[in-house]
Each structure stands twice: as C-alpha cells, then as structure tokens.
C-alpha cells in the first residue's frame, strides 16, 4: 500500500468512525479521528496480522490502551478485512461484538480487553514479556492517549518495560492535547512527555505531524532498530481531525453527532476523499 492508498484508507477509517458513532448515538469521535493515520499505518503496513487467523501465536499484537477510541480501531479492522463495514452500525448496540470499549472475548482480532485507562500498556508489557520468555519474535504495540498518561500505572508499566529491556514493545502516544475537561495544561499537565519517557528508559521518537504517513513510516522503522530498551513514538495530532466542527474541540471527546452534524461530517470527509 503506497502513501496515497494509506491516505485514502485513513479517510475511509474516519468515515467509519463517524458512521459507528452516529449509529450508536454515543462514543468517542475526537480521539478516534486523531489516531486515524496511526491505526491505518499499524494495520495496513506495520503489523503482521491476518484476519483469517486472528489468533495466530506469532502475530504482532496491538493493545488499545485508550480503549474509548475503539471506533478508530474497529474502523481500520473493517478495512483490513476482520469484518464487514456494515457491522460498524451495530457499535454499542445490545448483542454487538463491537462493544463500547474493546472486548477480546467478543471480537476476534482484539488482543486485549481495555477501557480502564492506564491498564492497557501494562497488559501490552505482559504480552511483550511473554514473547521474551517463549523466544518469540512478534512485536507488541500499544496506543495511549496523552490524557491517559496522567494515570500512575502508565509509569509503573514504563518502569517495568525498561527495567526488563523489552525492546519488542512499541508504545505510541496520541498527543492531541485535549482531554475531557480541556487542554492537558488546564487539567493536569503531563508535559514534557518525551523527557518523562526518556527518564523512564525509553527510546523516544517525536513525530511532529502524526497525520503524515512518511513521518509515521520513519518512526516505526526506527523503532524496529532499537535494542535493549522499549520505544515510545509521541505523535502530535489534531483531535477531531478531518471533521471541520470537531477539530480541536474537547466537546467532541465523547459525543455523537446528530443527523445534521453527521451529514456535515460525512460531506467534509467526502471532500477530503475526492482530493486524494
């Protein structure tokens, strides 16, 4: 998949996010949209996963530590062929495999049930540690929110990952600078994020534009070369990216669009799609 195809896929993932959240009348579009390129790069380029064999012991693993942004994960899984796009409309409905936060027991392809912030990275650390014990070469990826890293457990996990030299672990921080109650600085600033991870023994890669596939490609390639320590890729992103009225608006952290807003959002994404 070339960069142009990745861009088109990310735009389709954004449409999938809006569709899922609109039909659910609930969900978290803002942080899903900000991670659309990250999800797309991971599932279309970076990770060794097979929708036909989602439980393969040698597959790469992905743990969505910021579980509430699963509309983005479901959005890319549909594009990767784990299930049909149509199923996105069942998101958050009774009986759906697409739970409000990911459930590994309900949806094949989900490597860990998450939703409670701070726990996913620890689970990813456990999965990475298991690879070391069993001598397996799979890599483990985990995506965190920048607000999520206010949870102390994230730093417990980071301390362990570097102490045990888990170079098969790649954490990604979606740094869209907004959380429910406002900007990170307004709530309880975790900055400087890079210096903190560096102090915890991580190889740190700053990505100036987390929506740029060339920058993402370079970052993930660099992460693979790191030995003896875990890597974190900190991506500057825009919350709500791609939907005009959601961009940089904390109000769209966890709210669904109404019918009129849905139409505007889809038209925005349609226009972006035509330009690609």
């Amino acid at each position: 998949m070339n960069v142009q195809e990745l861009k088109r896929t990310a735009n389709q993932v954004r449409k999938n996010i809006i569709t899922a959240v609109y039909y659910a009348k609930a969900g978290h579009p803002g942080g899903s949209l900000s991670s659309a390129e990250i999800y797309t790069y991971l599932y279309m380029k970076e990770m060794n996963v097979d929708p036909a064999d989602p439980g393969s012991p040698d597959r790469d693993r992905f743990v969505l530590s910021k579980g509430h942004t699963c509309p983005g994960l479901y959005g890319v899984m549909a594009e990767r062929g784990f299930f049909d796009r149509e199923e996105l409309k069942t998101f958050r409905h009774v009986g759906s495999r697409l739970q409000g936060h990911p459930s590994m027991r309900m949806l094949p392809g989900i490597d860990m049930s998450t939703g409670s912030l701070g726990q996913g990275i620890s689970c990813a650390v456990g999965i990475a540690a298991a690879a070391k014990v069993k001598g397996k070469s799979y890599r483990t990826y985990t995506l965190l929110g920048d607000g999520e890293i206010e949870e102390g457990q994230v730093w417990e996990a980071a301390m362990f990952a570097s102490a045990k030299k888990l170079d098969n672990l790649c954490a990604i921080v979606d740094n869209n600078n907004l959380q429910i109650d406002g900007t990170l600085e307004e709530v309880n600033s975790p900055y400087p994020i890079d210096k903190k991870f560096e102090a915890f023994g991580f190889h740190v890669i700053n990505v100036a534009d987390g929506h740029d596939f060339d920058q993402l490609a370079a970052a993930f390639a660099e992460a693979r070369t790191v030995k003896g320590q875990p890597t974190v890729i900190i991506c500057k992103t825009t919350k709500g990216k791609g939907v005009s009225f959601m961009e940089n608006n904390a109000g769209w952290h966890g709210k669904a669009p109404n019918e009129e807003e849905y139409k505007i959002a889809m038209a925005d994404l349609e226009r972006i799609g035509e330009s690609l």
């Binding site: 726990q119 620890s122 540690a129 298991a130 457990q153």
Partner: peptide, 27 residues
C-alpha cells in the same frame, strides 16, 4: 527466567499478568 519481580506496583503487576495470560502463559 520465568519470574518477574514487578517492584512495589501491584496494579501494574495484575495487568502484566493479564498480558502474559493473553499470550498463552499461566501466570
């Protein structure tokens, strides 16, 4: 080689155990 001292961080330890189990170990 099959023992992990997580230090004084019990919550982290439980989630790491979950990850180990998800990868097929019996923690």
């Amino acid at each position: 080689d099959r023992f992990f001292n997580c230090g004084i961080a019990e919550g982290n330890m439980m989630s790491i155990a979950a990850g180990l189990a998800a990868a097929g170990m019996i923690p």
